[in-house]
Nucleic acid binder design. Structure first.
Lengths: 110, 110
DNA sequence: CAAGCATATCCATACATGCTCATATAGTTT
DNA sequence: AAACTATATGAGCATGTATGGATATGCTTG
């Protein structure tokens, strides 16, 4: 009844999962760092300020979601953005948030 | 050191929070239902299959995030999509996931 | 093959989040 | 005002998740 939804239950969970992966500050920070350039884990650890264990874990999760790619080179593992849609996603959210902020400013300015 | 990130720490948390709000199957389902049309809570409860308390709570969260709007009419409260960026966001994620699925299919088909 | 470095994983813990039941609030009708 | 309907909220519980320290794995070099 009224279940002619355009997204199946399974697809809905997949989409939610992807959003959830992006809904974590440390993961977003890592993605942002990777947007500048492909980098090895140790560089990401230093730049992000997180512990090695935590950064590694988050990178695993991002890789499992297909958002970043792994490339082994000697002892190091280089991660890079694998899904370009991330850029547009972040732009969209940032734009939307800016609009909201603008509204709030308006409330204060009259 | 290396903290010339394009997004401030605060902004990063805001973006993460927005993604996190979208990272929940029930909330996505509610948004999807609202994409069809503005609806009162009881309709959303029935269509989503969730309990009244839970649906109400999720709607509160969506409203707090500025994603949906509240409109009171008599006893009922009508919710509606307030942020059109949701459409593009979902399209982007769906498109990205479809590409990933396609890759997986390729792996099986050769 | 021993030593050393980079990365991943295990374990335990703290914290956040979703869910349900019961109840409160708000508005309507008689 | 009392009864009724629709929605929101409080409390408690269960589960998930992020985190840090210690340790294992993998690779390279002496």
């Amino acid at each position: 009844m009224a279940k002619t939804s355009s997204l199946s239950e399974g697809a809905l969970h997949l989409v939610a999962r992807r959003f959830a992966v992006l809904g974590e500050p440390m993961r977003l920070r890592l993605l942002q760092l990777l947007m500048a350039a492909e980098q090895p884990v140790n560089a990401l650890v230093e730049a992000s300020g997180g512990t090695q264990a935590n950064v590694s874990r988050h990178l695993q999760m991002l890789a499992a979601a297909g958002l970043v790619s792994r490339r082994k080179e000697g002892l190091q593992v280089f991660y890079a953005i694998a899904d370009p849609s991330i850029f547009k996603l972040c732009d969209l959210v940032c734009g939307s948030l800016e609009k909201q902020m603008a509204k709030h400013v308006k409330l204060f300015e009259g």
